[in-house]
């Protein structure tokens, strides 16, 4: 029984780690740009596709297999640099201050375009490249085998929470982000270039989503539909945590990850709906999410 519990917790936390990467990016972009980016899930799947492609290339080129680890980060960075500034500049910027319906339509259109482009480039079949997972192997703890890669995911997510908090609290750009989230107009009169802050925050958001996809690819592979699934989960997690809340997204991801793991073991039919049941319950009790507030805009 205890063994099962331990297994559930590791599975749940590893799942939570992946969801966290997408959700925290979504929430960051929402609080800084005030846009609910429907295309955010696409960055997750594109990150996964690019990671699988680069991973396969590293392996087939006969390079050292451990290079598949930095390749995961490289993939996310490539996606962020190639898409972040471009999408912000040409698709989002003109929608600032316009109606939310318009913004959702624009990002939904982007999502559809990305879906088709991914099918065009990578086909409709699933791709797998799990060298990083194989390399790390398994640990035998008290007779139960755990994938070491899962521990890596959990550690990565924990480090990311800390790094993001440090970025926001300790760096100059972090302070500018806090100011822009709190009061755009006053931030401008203080000399903060809000456009630059938007580009940077959006690109960081893309990077986090793509990193989630890249890190997920060795465990789940990648196939059409991954982006939509990631978006919906990320949205549920962001809403549970309170939109704009970094630690809220982390806690919400843990709750959703653990509930999903429990559902998979005890009631597999419910796995898909569990995140939304959790969301429903939380929002009924706390309409602005676990960490959210009505009054203050903060990050």
């Amino acid at each position: 029984m205890l063994d099962l519990l331990a297994l559930l917790i590791v599975d749940g936390l590893a799942d939570a780690a992946l969801i966290f990467f997408v959700a925290v990016g979504l929430t960051l972009v929402f609080s800084v740009l005030r846009i609910l980016n429907v295309a955010h899930g696409s960055f997750y799947s594109i990150g996964a596709y690019v990671a699988v492609s680069i991973g396969m290339w590293v392996v087939s080129a006969g390079w050292h297999p451990y290079l598949t680890f930095p390749a995961l980060f490289l993939s996310a960075a490539l996606v962020a640099v190639a898409l972040g500034p471009f999408i912000e500049r040409y698709f989002l910027r003109w929608t600032y201050g316009k109606s939310e319906a318009l913004q959702i339509l624009v990002t939904f259109a982007l999502f559809l375009v990305f879906e088709d482009l991914q099918k065009l480039v990578f086909g409709v079949q699933a791709h797998y490249e799990d060298t990083p997972l194989q390399l790390l192997g398994v640990s035998d703890i008290g007779g139960i085998f755990y994938l070491n890669y899962q521990f890596l995911l959990i550690a990565m997510a924990a480090v990311t929470v800390i790094l993001l908090r440090l970025l926001i609290r300790r760096t100059m750009i972090g302070k500018f982000i806090v100011a822009v989230v709190a009061d755009r107009e006053i931030a401008q009169t203080m000399g903060i270039n809000t456009t630059r802050v938007f580009v940077i925050a959006f690109t960081v958001g893309v990077f986090l989503a793509a990193l989630g996809g890249a890190l997920a690819s060795p465990t789940s592979g990648v196939a059409p539909g991954l982006g939509a699934e990631a978006l919906v989960l990320a949205f549920a997690v962001a809403a549970i945590g309170g939109l704009g809340q970094i630690e809220g997204a982390a806690l919400a991801a843990v709750i959703v990850g653990l509930s999903r793991a429990a559902a998979i073991h005890f009631a597999p039919d419910f796995e898909a709906v569990v995140p939304y049941l959790v969301m429903l319950v939380v929002l009924l009790i706390r309409p602005y999410g676990l960490f959210g507030t009505v009054q203050a805009r903060r990050i």
């Binding site: 302070k175 806090v178 100011a179 709190a182 009061d183 107009e185 006053i186 401008q188 009169t189 203080m190 000399g191 903060i192 270039n193 809000t194 203050a296 903060r298």
Partner: peptide, 30 residues
């Protein structure tokens, strides 16, 4: 707008609008 501060123009709006998460010194230095 963000270039006006660099021209030496300072503005105090009627409702103060300090950044609530920053302390007074951080608000001044920002």
């Amino acid at each position: 707008a963000h270039g006006r501060a660099a021209l030496g123009m300072g503005y105090a709006p009627e409702d103060r609008r300090l950044i609530g998460d920053f302390n007074v010194e951080e608000n001044l230095l920002l």
